[in-house]
Design a protein around this nucleic acid. Sequence first.
DNA 1: GATGAATGAGCTTTCATTCAT
DNA 2: AATGAATGAAAGCTCATTCAT
Lengths: 198, 198, 198, 198
Amino acid sequence: MKAETKKGKKKESIIKAALALFSLNGFYKTTIPDIARRLGMSAGNIYNYFPSKDILAQEIIKYTSEILGHEIQKINLQTDLTTHQKIKKIVEVYFNMATQKPEMIEYFLRVYLSNREVFTGECDKMICVAGFITEIMIFFADGVECGELRDQDFFSAFGLFMGYLGGMAFLNGESILSRPLESYIDEIAYNIYHALKT
Amino acid sequence: MKAETKKGKKKESIIKAALALFSLNGFYKTTIPDIARRLGMSAGNIYNYFPSKDILAQEIIKYTSEILGHEIQKINLQTDLTTHQKIKKIVEVYFNMATQKPEMIEYFLRVYLSNREVFTGECDKMICVAGFITEIMIFFADGVECGELRDQDFFSAFGLFMGYLGGMAFLNGESILSRPLESYIDEIAYNIYHALKT
Amino acid sequence: MKAETKKGKKKESIIKAALALFSLNGFYKTTIPDIARRLGMSAGNIYNYFPSKDILAQEIIKYTSEILGHEIQKINLQTDLTTHQKIKKIVEVYFNMATQKPEMIEYFLRVYLSNREVFTGECDKMICVAGFITEIMIFFADGVECGELRDQDFFSAFGLFMGYLGGMAFLNGESILSRPLESYIDEIAYNIYHALKT
Amino acid sequence: MKAETKKGKKKESIIKAALALFSLNGFYKTTIPDIARRLGMSAGNIYNYFPSKDILAQEIIKYTSEILGHEIQKINLQTDLTTHQKIKKIVEVYFNMATQKPEMIEYFLRVYLSNREVFTGECDKMICVAGFITEIMIFFADGVECGELRDQDFFSAFGLFMGYLGGMAFLNGESILSRPLESYIDEIAYNIYHALKT
DNA sequence: GATGAATGAGCTTTCATTCAT
DNA sequence: AATGAATGAAAGCTCATTCAT
């Protein structure tokens, strides 16, 4: 994503607009004209930047995965933290996003995870979110290495982590939780830690 | 669902066909003619049983939620089991479904959780899956009462449980897991138990 | 319309129900099931009495025309009345119908006059309302004969009479008139009389 | 109706085609594909100009009302004419239209007056034909002011005028009249004048 | 690059009518 | 006579995508 070039900048603005709309209204309920309108450009012109709606959706998930991955990476780099503290930080970052800039997480949950038929080809088998998954892998490997986490199948831990956080974000989005999402951080971090610790 | 009447039987057969197709291809990629074709009936006739595609989708989630709820209920009624054993049973039931009759769980994950705009009205705020949620609530309350589970916010426990299982089912559906889903039962039950225990 | 036979009675009840619905919602916005529902019978059964929706509509106009014609006939038979008085009576009858049992007049205006494609075959060229037209003809001929009305082309008089009354009924139906329809009787009878008198 | 712009021109061409078809075959018997076919364009494209069939029908009545209103206005502006002469002119204009370009008048009679459910919202209560009605109002007020017409309820006069002309146009359309429509001009103008004069 | 009119395929839904029961 | 499930044809409308300008 050479956001420096003019073309790169425009692509990113389209990605942002489409991300907002897709996450809010769903992939199929968002039309290309909708996206164009939000940007004040013509529908046809979007095709000068992305060859199809599907490809646009794929680019969005890559973009989103990169940004979320970066956030986890920042935590992974803080080597002075205990694993429990890292877990808390990750939950915190995730929940803050879910409440303050919910588009990315909603996109994950409601567009990427559901409309599998859209994310084929280059995006098969979660390749397009590899950046994000890798950072979770690193977090987990670190925890295992320093003896704080049990050495188990990675996906077993990954499913717990991401399923749990996603589930809570969903419940929050549905206004079902009795308290603000952020107030759950401590107990959820506690639960995750106790599930995974040695 | 008076499946005894002729009309009830037909309704159920439509529900089953639609469930299979929706869970496989998504709500918007499945057309009413698709469903009709699978049943060998005309598209128009489906409207003699369900007034709209949306309503059909809502009836399906009710149907599914009832069946899944029953499965959990059966476990809840086995009072001789420890909470850890119950957790294992629930995971087992869930994973068996996910591999053997994946439609229901896939429907939950890919249709119900994602296409929120479809589940409005009568189905707002997860009302249509209340049957299922209630059973999980009972499981949790029992565990707390007998002292095996920590008394925490229900949704905190619910999100863990369902997010985790859903996450694993998803990874399995994407053929990402390195082992068969069932082989994860023990370690996942272990993780959940340690996350929630006192 | 042998209303005495069982079949005749049922036919009439269908006609009445259909008349009410067609005049209220229009021919194309009224469905056969709508009519059946209003009668508490099945849609299919209606076809045991009328071979098609179009034919039903045609039978209705004949039925209506007969009844309206009878009303005019009653006035024609009152030989003691002056033509001006007869005009007043006709206007009165018409407006009373338009306010108290508006179905027939609305049917005339909004179904019969507009959906010409429905009234073909047997009903071409207003044959089906001949009964009514004939009575107006008689009224006019009488008026001419007794020297009160100018002898002009019948349709010139007929158009005035019926167009005028229909127009007023329409305006009334649209709630556009500033006063109740009945309050117009005198001035309208006056206008008609002065238009047609010798 | 900015007919100058390209889009305006196209809109007008759609209006004209739809007007012709609606007036000939009725609103419900005319399909969007019918209209498109007549224009050699695709059905979908019509929706780039009018958001729905109903709205299209409403635009047509506005368009028609404006044109008919203009014709009356021209007569109103001829201050040298007596009221009787004006009436004759109006009848003449109306009948000429009815025979030479019958779409507009047929549209009035068979689409606008009958399919009330289509002309809701912006078009409620004859708002969309206000332009035309206003000119008739002016004609009537002028006639009253100069002492030639009796001062009565406007709708009483309006109903006479328009009901009469509409009725004759209808009879003509049904090929029921014994003579060409234009041949009735004099006697009808006479009738109207004598109905309304002081 | 940018526009937006145009297309065409496809969708949900409706409904008169038929027909087995 | 009566039912109502079933059909099939068609309608209105949407939208990703193309392309002339």
